[in-house]
Design a binder for these strands. Structure first.
Lengths: 109, 109
DNA sequence: TTGCTATATGACTATATAGTTATATTATGC
DNA sequence: GCATAATATAACTATATAGTCATATAGCAA
């Protein structure tokens, strides 16, 4: 079972994973990967982000365990590691929507 | 129902909330609040963090909607806004534990 | 070999923010 | 009024990192 209090190390590890989800660009990349396994080039095309930038985001997401990858020839295919990303983002998205409902409406775009 | 794709604004709002959970000190504060409503001074005593630092973290957590507060006399009592923090942290904690199980064991402390 | 494509990485800049110190605010008691 | 306590905030420093540009690496084709 889970311990009552978390060690400093555990707090750092958990915070590090939240940080991986704490950037709009990375959330956008994950959103693309929600559609299925993709190459880096496909992610570039669908997000419009810079190549080096996407590559670094993918390294970070991989280090955080949110995506897996496999190399095929000259390409690298990335995919979501599991369904936790959905659960986490859906929870957060629900909060934002709920707040928008009380605060007023979400600005258009 | 949830939209298929998220707008830039929504991505920013969701990322901002993840960022609120992306710091060990804030996770520690939330962990303290898991034990119930607390004043700032109580949080200071239990975390050992600096006063100004805790105050700023609490402002941020409040702005992100994770905690509510009420003033009583000269004190401010903070408490968790809802149970989402548990769900989010438990999900992340589960990931860290699972990874620790495969990677090797978690370093002691 | 040369050239081309896909991806990764190093160097750099600009920005955000955690933490600290000092100060301001606000409520209470005398 | 004044003093004290609890909390918030402003100014500052140090560090982390998102983004960009240039370059490196690696596979494939001719």
């Amino acid at each position: 079972m889970a311990p009552k209090t978390l060690s400093t190390t555990q707090l750092r590890l958990i915070a590090q994973r939240f940080k991986a989800l704490a950037e709009p660009s990375r959330l956008e990349i994950l959103s693309v990967l929600k559609g299925g396994e993709r190459t880096v080039t496909e992610i570039l095309d669908r997000t419009g982000l810079g190549q080096a930038n996407v590559s670094k985001h993918l390294q970070l997401l991989h280090a955080a365990g949110f995506v897996t990858r496999r190399k095929v020839g000259v390409s690298t295919w990335y995919r979501l590691a599991d369904a936790d990303v959905f659960r986490l983002c859906d929870l957060m998205c629900g909060r934002v929507e709920k707040e928008a409902a009380t605060t007023g409406k979400l600005f258009t775009r």
